[in-house]
C-alpha cells in the first residue's frame, strides 16, 4: 500500500503497556488453567486412574485449613492496600503510595511466611510426595503432588509480584507523576491477578 509522509501524521504510540500486560496475564491464566484442568480431571475420578476411583483425602485437614484461611485474609487485605497505593500514585502523592505499597509487600511476605510454616508442618508429618506414607497411599500421593505443584507455583508468582512491587517502590522517588501512576497500575494489576489465583486455589485445595 503506498504511503505518503503527510505533515499531519504522527507516531501513533499510546503506550502498549496495558495491552501487553493483559496479554501476559492471559497466558499466565492458561498456565494455571493447565494445572487446574489436570487437577480437576484427575480428581473428578476420571476413568484413567490406576485403581479405578482413587480415594482422595477428605477436605480441610485441621491446622493447614486454619493457616490457609489466615493466608486468604492476608492476601485480600494486601489487595485492598494495593488499591489504595494506586489511587495515591494517580494523585501524584509518592509518599502515600510508598506507605501503602510497603503495607502490601509486608502482607505478601507474611503470606509466604505462613506458607512456609504450613509446608514445614506437612513435611514433618511425612505429607510429601515420595514419603513412605505417600507411596503406600495413592490418593495422598496424587493429592500432595497437585497440592505442592499449585502452591509452589502460586508462591513463585507471589515472589515475582513482590520483586515487581519492590522495583516500582525504589523507582517511586525518581519518576514523574504520570509515569509513576502507570507503573503503579501495572504492578497492581499483576498483584491482583496473583490474589485471584489464590482465591481459586483455596477452595480447590482445602474445602473440597
Amino acid at each position: 500500500m503506498s504511503a505518503t509522509t503527510a505533515q499531519d501524521a504522527d507516531w501513533t504510540e499510546e503506550d502498549g503497556g496495558r495491552v501487553g500486560l493483559w496479554l501476559f496475564i492471559l497466558s499466565e491464566i492458561l498456565l494455571f488453567g493447565g494445572f487446574l484442568a489436570s487437577y480437576l480431571s484427575t480428581r473428578l475420578g476420571n476413568a484413567e486412574c490406576a485403581l479405578g476411583v482413587v480415594s482422595w483425602p477428605e477436605a480441610g485437614h485441621g491446622a493447614s485449613l486454619a493457616l490457609a484461611t489466615l493466608n486468604t485474609v492476608l492476601l485480600l487485605t494486601s489487595s485492598y492496600t494495593m488499591v489504595r497505593a494506586i489511587s495515591r500514585a494517580s494523585r501524584g502523592d509518592a509518599d502515600g503510595f510508598r506507605a501503602n505499597l510497603a503495607a502490601t509487600m509486608t502482607l505478601g511476605l507474611g503470606f509466604l511466611a505462613v506458607k512456609g510454616v504450613e509446608y514445614w508442618l506437612k513435611v514433618s508429618h511425612g505429607w510429601y510426595p515420595g514419603s513412605e506414607f505417600a507411596r503406600s497411599n495413592p490418593g495422598m500421593s496424587i493429592f500432595l503432588s497437585y497440592y505442592y505443584l499449585l502452591t509452589i507455583f502460586h508462591g513463585l508468582h507471589v515472589i515475582a509480584g513482590l520483586v515487581w512491587n519492590g522495583a516500582v517502590y525504589s523507582a517511586a522517588g525518581r519518576l514523574p507523576a504520570p509515569q509513576l501512576a502507570r507503573k503503579a497500575e501495572y504492578a497492581g494489576l499483576y498483584w491482583h491477578f496473583v490474589d485471584v489465583v489464590w482465591v481459586l486455589l483455596f477452595p480447590l485445595l482445602y474445602l473440597i
Binding site: T42, A50, G130, I142
Partner: peptide, 10 residues
C-alpha cells in the same frame, strides 16, 4: 510427584 504414574493415582 506422581502426576503421570497410574500406580499412584496419576
Amino acid at each position: 510427584t506422581t502426576f503421570f504414574d497410574p500406580a499412584l493415582g496419576g
